[in-house]
Amino acid sequence: MNEKRLIQRKWQMSLFFITIIGITYLSAVITNFNLLHGVGTIPEAIGWIFSNLYITQESLERLPDILTKLIETISMSIAATTTAAVVSVFLGLMGSKTTSINGYLSVLARFIASLSRNIPVVAWALILLLSFGQNSVTGYLALFVATVGFLTRAFIESIDEASQSSVEALTATGATYFHIVNKAVIPQCLPQMISWVLFMIETNIRSATLVGLLTGTGIGFIFDLYYKTMDYNTVALITFSIVIAVIIIELISNHIRKVVL
């Protein structure tokens, strides 16, 4: 019996890999992708990077403007994440089975989370661009809507995984809904919630750069500006600044996680 199951699993794995290979080959044919040609161009691409993307004294003179735009991008990302976290806490409480008031609110909260999460932040930026134009408000709203969907889903799962014993104990004593949430649910989920918020701040800083290309704001705007004028030395400085900023934010987030968790 075990041997039969083993043979069946081998066939299933073989069929799975054959299917993946078939899909990959079909995708390459449709997109006219040539793997050998792609691999062959890697040395040339690396050579172009080292010969064009380097920082010069002239590009360093633009560092103050770059840092100003970078701070603007980071501030927008933090503002969008923190305000979205407040909204997501309420939606998470509505959507969780543990703290849901009624089924309709739960379905509504989960629908909002699913809708805003499954539409990419770039798509949200394009949609909002038609209504609000190219400004920082559009970038903020795009990050806010996408973050609400992700954090709501994460908060729902965190609340559902919380221990039910303290909730049941407070319920048995006749505690109100708000007492149960404040005394039993939030204290258990708060470390995980903070961790998710920190993760989204890191993610939104990266996303804000791309959103800035569309909304004409922040570090993404000047990256696009200097890239289109073929000032690759300044582009290298901007890229380096973004990488350093993301690394610093990640180190700070990791330290806060260690303290909180």
Results as ranks from 00 to 15, higher is better:
residue 37 H to S: 15
residue 51 S to N: 12
residue 83 T to W: 07
residue 35 L to S: 10
residue 65 D to R: 13
residue 56 T to V: 05
residue 94 M to C: 11
residue 123 A to K: 05
residue 110 R to M: 11
residue 60 L to K: 10
residue 22 G to Q: 03
residue 109 A to S: 15
residue 150 F to S: 12
residue 57 Q to E: 11
residue 20 I to T: 03
residue 117 R to H: 10
residue 133 G to A: 05
residue 19 T to E: 08
residue 120 P to N: 02
residue 27 S to K: 08
residue 108 L to D: 00
residue 126 L to K: 05
residue 139 G to Y: 05
residue 144 F to T: 04
residue 62 R to W: 05
residue 37 H to T: 15
residue 130 L to Q: 10
residue 66 I to K: 08
residue 23 I to V: 15
residue 104 Y to A: 14
residue 54 Y to L: 02
residue 48 W to Q: 11
residue 53 L to I: 09
residue 109 A to R: 04
residue 98 T to G: 05
residue 61 E to L: 13
residue 143 L to V: 07
residue 122 V to G: 00
residue 77 S to R: 05
residue 90 F to M: 08
residue 104 Y to N: 13
residue 70 L to A: 11
residue 94 M to N: 07
residue 24 T to M: 14
residue 87 V to I: 15
residue 36 L to G: 12
residue 91 L to W: 04
residue 34 N to I: 09
residue 98 T to E: 12
residue 51 S to T: 11
residue 85 A to G: 06
residue 64 P to N: 08
residue 95 G to R: 01
residue 52 N to A: 05
residue 51 S to I: 00
residue 85 A to C: 09
residue 34 N to V: 07
residue 36 L to K: 13
residue 46 I to W: 10
residue 149 G to K: 02
residue 40 G to Q: 13
residue 35 L to I: 14
residue 107 V to P: 00
residue 45 A to G: 00
residue 111 F to E: 01
residue 77 S to G: 15
residue 131 S to N: 09
residue 134 Q to F: 08
residue 116 S to Y: 12
residue 70 L to H: 01
residue 140 Y to P: 03
residue 116 S to K: 05
residue 148 V to Y: 01
residue 61 E to A: 12
residue 121 V to I: 13
residue 72 E to D: 11
residue 31 T to D: 11
residue 95 G to A: 07
residue 46 I to A: 15
residue 104 Y to L: 14
residue 39 V to D: 02
residue 79 A to G: 01
residue 77 S to T: 07
residue 76 M to F: 07
residue 107 V to D: 08
residue 51 S to Q: 12
residue 123 A to S: 13
residue 150 F to E: 10
residue 114 S to C: 09
residue 22 G to S: 14
residue 32 N to I: 01
residue 76 M to D: 00
residue 84 A to Y: 01
residue 127 I to Y: 05
residue 113 A to M: 10
residue 33 F to C: 03
residue 96 S to N: 09
residue 88 S to E: 05
residue 89 V to D: 05
residue 152 T to P: 09
residue 137 V to T: 15
residue 153 R to A: 12
residue 69 K to D: 13
residue 29 V to F: 10
residue 32 N to P: 01
residue 117 R to P: 07
residue 93 L to S: 05
residue 133 G to K: 07
residue 70 L to N: 12
residue 51 S to K: 07
residue 16 F to T: 11
residue 108 L to I: 15
residue 122 V to N: 04
residue 70 L to G: 08
residue 154 A to D: 06
residue 149 G to Q: 04
residue 150 F to P: 00
residue 55 I to G: 03
residue 101 I to N: 08
residue 142 A to Q: 07
residue 150 F to L: 13
residue 111 F to S: 15
residue 44 E to Y: 10
residue 69 K to Y: 10
residue 152 T to S: 12
residue 39 V to A: 14
